[in-house]
Design a protein around this nucleic acid. Structure first.
Lengths: 369, 369
DNA sequence: TGCTCATGGAGAAACGTATCTCCAGCCAAG
DNA sequence: CTTGGCTGGAGATACGTTTCTCCATGAGCA
């Protein structure tokens, strides 16, 4: 008695109880071949004549056979699943301020993964350890890991490939990708200075993530270099209301800036509203730039110059690096390799001061134009 | 010789080859108990004194034991994974126009799933059959299923619970949730009429999805009811450029509407821009409402009245219904049960005509106020 | 003493696949 | 006639759990 027949007998007795899906054994029995042959035929392995292959495939199709992903994963050690880890504030996954960025990035990452036969699982960075351990991952993408992130360290220790979006603070990862935030900020400040700005302000965040830290440092360094007094307001970026308040505060200062760069997506509208309250015209009295992926800034009045972090490119790169690591089965190297991606400044009217069309006198005449 | 010891011996010989994670057998051996005891201790089952439980847990912790999700899934038949199926246009998952809606909905769905111990897997609705069959799902959420959706039918046939966001055209699902689009559109049209509108136009889509169809039908029905000539322009909603063109076309008509409702998120800015081109003031010359989840319409000039579909509530409901079906193990009933969720109209200045503050004469005096 | 129960825990059978090992048959070359 | 290689395919094992079944022990009770 063959194993298949044996199984079939057992299966037949329990069939009445619950609806059972056809397994590889059923296909083997129906095709009159062994399990090995079925597996080889369907997976294109082994040495089989095409005749046998097509016959097995027909039978499998007829029975509506779907291989068990769980069994395959158990056997091969590969699940085809990639974790997408997002930072959480409170109950919600991913922050409000990073919303557009995250959505674009996740979309690109999803596409890239699917193109290579993987699927993405969205997981929270903190807590819910139960969920984490319940899903078999081949690797993980971490967005904006915190300094000394315990979760990342834990994953890495388990031998799981980890690629982060954002240079990791102080935890080992297989690889990382990040924007060149330093260069981006310097570029914006130079752009504003060329447009005539003399006192450039910054709207920044209070959190310690890499993006905020690097950007603020670049700003301070630039100020030091050109001898400008730093003018900035920081607020908790995850609080959507705090941004408007901070924007107001920045423009209410006695040493009011004549240009502002806002690090977060909603800063553009917040600053525009604040400027309106103080009767400041943009760009005549106030130059504006903010970091955003949203295209609403193309249609605001006036349109606002934005810095795009190109999240699509980042999402694609991160996933491809991760899958390379998974399939290369390269043991995570000690010296983690990083990659800096360029950003894109989309110049619109809010940061361009043309020869005044009206008779308005700018706070300072554009000296270095 | 016990099975554990036997295993341990075998394991020891191969240890040198690859880094092996501790399995349940290793924990059992180290704790001096059986595999059964370890499993029971860690899962809170069986009859064990607390003493044994804590000891086993300590040993497991010390060895860094992580149960294999694949093995557990294979054994229990539950993966804790829920598919989130998104429609695709071309290569990209989820459409551009549904972007904010989808992002919010997905976020809520992710939270809801995690709260109940499940994780979400993002999957494309079309093609990539290989990826689909490679992941063990407990159930699937389908966003906006197409009429006679073959994928949904296939999933359902396999006995997998399927819950859809959007009333399914003609395919069986376990349950569905949708907004009351009919009531929403009627509410908006009444709102506009009360604000003085006499010729309400509609910016709609050319696709056949439920949302577009129901909304358009409601509009046409309303027009018939009040005896207004329908004024609408339809465009392919997945093309971001086509919207601006359609908005322009609608306002360029000889029988130009004095109020417009736009079905899609970008319609608000598109219509505002078009109105500006034609020298129409909002709301004095043109009342505006659009369906959007974006809060940028709170800060446009003027702020635009929007209809929110409350995607968060939908995402949460859909996931909870699905998990109920999964855990209730209720066999999918033939008579699929649906649920209508209310929408929310956020009234802003663009749809309100107050007693004219300036000396402007509105196209028609607000007769029915 | 003999019987019943409750307690604590061990053994072993699955779950459904991939794959390693090995065998039978056949044909050609020595 | 023997040997060796190639073809087509069968058997059996392992992946790491969960869980069903069952046994040993000791206490309580007649």
């Amino acid at each position: 008695m063959t194993a298949a027949a044996n199984h079939h007998g057992r299966r037949a007795t329990t069939r009445a109880r619950r609806l059972e899906r056809a397994g590889i054994r059923d296909v083997a029995a129906a095709a009159g071949v062994s399990i090995t042959t079925v597996s080889d035929a369907l997976n294109g392995k082994g040495r089989l004549p095409d005749e046998t292959r097509t016959k097995v495939r027909e039978v499998a199709e007829r029975l509506g056979y779907r291989p068990s992903a769980a069994a395959r994963t158990l056997r091969t050690g590969r699940s085809g699943l990639i974790g997408l880890t997002v930072t959480t504030y409170g109950q919600e996954p991913f922050t409000f301020t990073e919303f557009a960025y995250f959505a674009e990035m996740a979309r690109a990452a999803t596409s890239a993964a699917l193109n290579r036969g993987y699927a993405l699982v969205v997981l929270p960075a903190s807590s819910r350890h139960d969920v984490w351990s319940n899903v078999a991952l081949d690797g993980t993408v971490v967005i904006d890991p915190a300094d000394h992130d315990p979760m990342v360290a834990d994953l890495y220790r388990q031998g799981l490939p980890v690629v982060s979006d954002g240079k990791p603070g102080n935890c080992p990862v297989t690889a990382w990708v990040d924007n060149d935030h330093h260069a981006a900020v310097l570029g914006i400040l130079d752009h504003l200075a060329q447009a005539g700005a003399r006192r450039i302000g910054l709207l920044t965040g209070t959190s310690t993530d890499t993006y905020t830290r690097l950007s603020t440092e670049a700003y301070l360094g630039w100020c030091r270099g050109v001898g400008q007094q730093p003018l900035y307001e920081a607020y908790p970026a995850h609080d959507p209301c705090a941004g408007a308040v901070a924007a107001d505060r920045l423009l209410a200062r006695p040493d009011r800036p004549d240009a502002v760069y806002g690090l977060f997506d909603p800063n553009g509208t917040d600053l525009l509203a604040a400027a309106r309250r103080y009767g400041l015209r943009v760009p005549e009295d106030l130059l504006l730039v903010c970091c955003s992926e949203s295209d609403v800034y193309a249609t605001t009045e006036p349109p606002i110059t934005t810095l795009s972090l190109k999240p699509r490119r980042i999402g694609t790169t991160v996933v491809n690096l991760l899958i390379d690591a998974i399939e290369g089965a390269a043991p995570p190297t000690q010296d983690t390799s990083g990659q800096l991606m360029p950003t894109e400044l989309i110049v619109r009217r809010s940061s361009q001061r043309r020869p005044a069309r009206t008779t308005v006198a700018a706070p300072r005449p554009p000296g270095e134009e």
